[in-house]
């Protein structure tokens, strides 16, 4: 378990905090945020590689704020793997064992387990320079876990990998988390990684945590405009209240439940805005007529921008569904939004 209380870190060009965070034992926790938000600073502070200006860090109820990194029992895996280039794979993995003599008996066994789990046995006598990206990352994971750390910190372990290696390492992470009692804390830019791996997540911005909670909640129910924007909620609107009713410009928007009075924004994920050519297809109370102003090719998907009066909506459509419906720029279309898909904050 990691517990961070009122953490402040001041560096020459960046400051982090105040920051409070609790990550329960054996959880897979993901930290997301834009570049320069302080994700790596937070990881390195937990690992003891940076000096904390103020606040406390507890690992399994024991305060470690001023303990050197080697006394914390925290493993770290970097994006660039940081394998020791002058040591073989075997010596890389076994590097930490001499510092954990009481775990030696069992770790011989655990090392073999890790090596077979990560499918590394054929690579043991190679040097890191002769390994593929995915293999290097698997070695880095084995090396970190060989000493049985209570916590494993992963600094964007997947982002430097080719797509096929990425899948391989993502699967490895999933398997390892299931097979160990270790708490995983991973920094990532990729929402797919967060959704497929994590139990809970936090979004960090300018050195502070904007939102922490279940991964799905962060994607579906952001608590701020920043998080909504960050997680790809492309439809974020300021709302006006007229009695119990909510309006975006002239459009009345229906929610599943009436939101608390303090909420002044709504957000809808682009994939939750359904575009029809026929007005009668949907019976949602949120049905509007507009016209297509732009169709943007985004690789696997198309972003369709629809203008309804003064309001612009963005929807995502797959290529087949766009071609089947025959929607083109300038066409008159109907959009519908399920009340449950409208999130107020």
């Amino acid at each position: 378990m990691i517990s961070i209380q009122d953490l402040h870190i001041r560096l020459s060009d960046f400051s982090l905090g105040p920051l409070d965070l609790v990550i329960p034992e054996s959880e897979f926790f993901v930290l997301m945020g834009p570049t320069g938000a302080g994700k790596t600073v937070l990881l390195e502070a937990i690992a003891g590689l940076l000096t904390v200006t103020r606040g406390h860090i507890f690992i399994h109820q024991k305060e470690v704020t001023y303990l050197p990194p080697e006394k914390r029992g925290i493993g770290i895996v970097y994006q660039d793997q940081a394998l020791f280039p002058h040591l073989t794979v075997r010596n890389n993995i076994a590097y930490g064992l001499r510092y954990h003599p009481n775990r030696q008996d069992r770790s011989g066994e655990s090392m073999d387990g890790l090596i077979s789990l990560l499918n590394l046995s054929h690579l043991m006598d190679r040097f890191p320079g002769n390994l593929s990206g995915g293999e290097k990352q698997r070695v880095a994971l084995a090396r970190a876990l060989a000493v049985r750390p209570g916590i494993l910190l992963l600094d964007e372990p997947l982002s430097a990998l080719d797509p096929n290696f990425k899948e391989e390492v993502r699967n490895a992470l999933q398997t390892l988390h299931q097979h160990t009692q270790t708490t995983f804390m991973m920094v990532t830019h990729d929402f797919a990684d967060a959704l497929s791996l994590a139990d809970r997540a936090a979004v960090i911005h300018n050195g502070r945590i904007e939102q922490v909670g279940q991964v799905n909640d962060i994607f579906q129910k952001p608590v701020s405009g920043f998080v909504a924007d960050f997680v790809g909620m492309k439809n974020v609107f300021h709302v006006q209240r007229k009695g119990p009713k909510l309006f975006v410009g002239p459009l009345e928007i229906h929610l599943e439940r009436p939101p608390a009075p303090a909420k002044a924004h709504i957000a809808v994920r682009p994939e939750d805005i359904v575009v029809h050519t026929d007005a009668f297809v949907s019976n949602s109370p949120n049905r509007f007529k507009g016209h297509v102003v732009r169709v943007l090719d985004q690789g696997f998907m198309y972003e369709v921008q629809i203008r309804v009066g003064e309001v612009n909506f963005k929807s995502l459509m797959t290529k087949p569904s766009l071609f089947e419906s025959g929607i083109r720029e300038g066409d008159e279309v109907f959009i519908s939004i399920r009340p449950a898909a409208v999130h107020a904050f």
Partner: peptide, 27 residues
């Protein structure tokens, strides 16, 4: 030499002296 190599070495339990002699010096 990337300081990350030293960071990893310390996270694995080596002191700064140990890290210097096992990682930094050989490199």
């Amino acid at each position: 030499i990337s300081p990350r190599l030293e960071n990893v070495s310390r996270s694995l339990g080596a002191s700064m002296f140990g890290t210097f002699f096992r990682i930094t010096f050989p490199l």
